[in-house]
Design a protein around this nucleic acid. Structure first.
Lengths: 153, 153
DNA sequence: CTAGGAGCTCGAGTCGACTCGAGGTCAACC
DNA sequence: GGTTGACCTCGAGTCGACTCGAGCTCCTAG
């Protein structure tokens, strides 16, 4: 309704997406855009608001680890128009699964890290309390005190 | 208490860590181990249980995105022995922050993906209900129906 | 009229983290 | 005594995703 056919230069798009102009050209050549980027006088790229919106989606998908080939495929499907929604859905669902898994994995890792941080905090806490500034507890074998918790990993 | 000084070959370690023998040698040369790997007859590597435990930690830190240089630094600190616990803690805390951020970011991304999946599910659901197997809704401009939700991102 | 700034193309370079291959040693088995 | 099979070293190759640079075209301002 509003926004009368904005036309942005590559520099402006770079500025508002946070991508570099290099990356924008690179993405174009990788076929990540749904519609070909129009060219203004002198062959300069001229982006529409739709292009920027699409880029925003791309950025989010990339940030969640979707590889460029998948992104390209998704762009292709959208470009082809209606009729392939199942495939788009499948692609998105697969990515959804991956991201969910990744969050799960990271959360598990975080547990270990949190545990180790706690161990070191305790250790330093005791140290600071028992003796002045100095070192202590040679431990058994030069290993780190915050080794794996009893519960497996 | 138990486990009388196990000594594992590189192949065995590869098997139980899931890393390749190539990667194990590579990690060693990158200085990721706390103590130098001992060599058996014929110059063959012989890993202790401690080495494997340490590797397990490394794998988790790597899986959560810690770069090799940071891992090397951590190994160095542990190798140096007691006295640098503050630095180890700082390193772990920093990584903890990164992982937390990453999980946050992924969770946000997941929201968009979930939204898009829902849009396509609805769309296909309606389609299947309204017409038989066939295509519909040319939408405005060849764009995808699941564009960004009203709420920013 | 020239200097600066934004764009353009095309090809090459970088970075992190592996991954592979060639060529060699050694012990065990048939 | 020949053939596996697991191991060794060292250097090179790969992959994904940018990132950079050289050399060029425009346009605008001083």
């Amino acid at each position: 309704m509003a926004a009368d056919a904005v036309s942005l230069s590559i520099g402006q798009v770079a500025e508002r997406t946070g991508l570099s102009v290099h990356t924008l050209r690179f993405y174009e050549q990788e076929g990540l855009f749904v519609s070909p980027i129009r060219r203004g006088p002198g062959g300069r790229r001229s982006y529409s608001q739709d292009d920027v919106d699409w880029l925003t989606v791309c950025i989010i998908l990339r940030a969640s680890g979707m590889p460029l080939p998948a992104l390209r495929r998704y762009a292709e499907l959208v470009r082809e128009g209606a009729g392939n929604e199942e495939e788009r859905l499948a692609l998105l669902r697969e990515h959804h699964g991956r991201v969910t898994d990744q969050i799960g994995r990271l959360t598990q890792c975080l547990d270990l890290i949190t545990f180790k941080v706690a161990v070191y905090e305790d250790l330093l806490d005791q140290d600071g309390r028992a003796a002045g500034p100095g070192r202590r507890s040679p431990s058994r074998g030069g290993d780190d005190p915050a080794s794996t918790p009893g519960t497996s990993v």
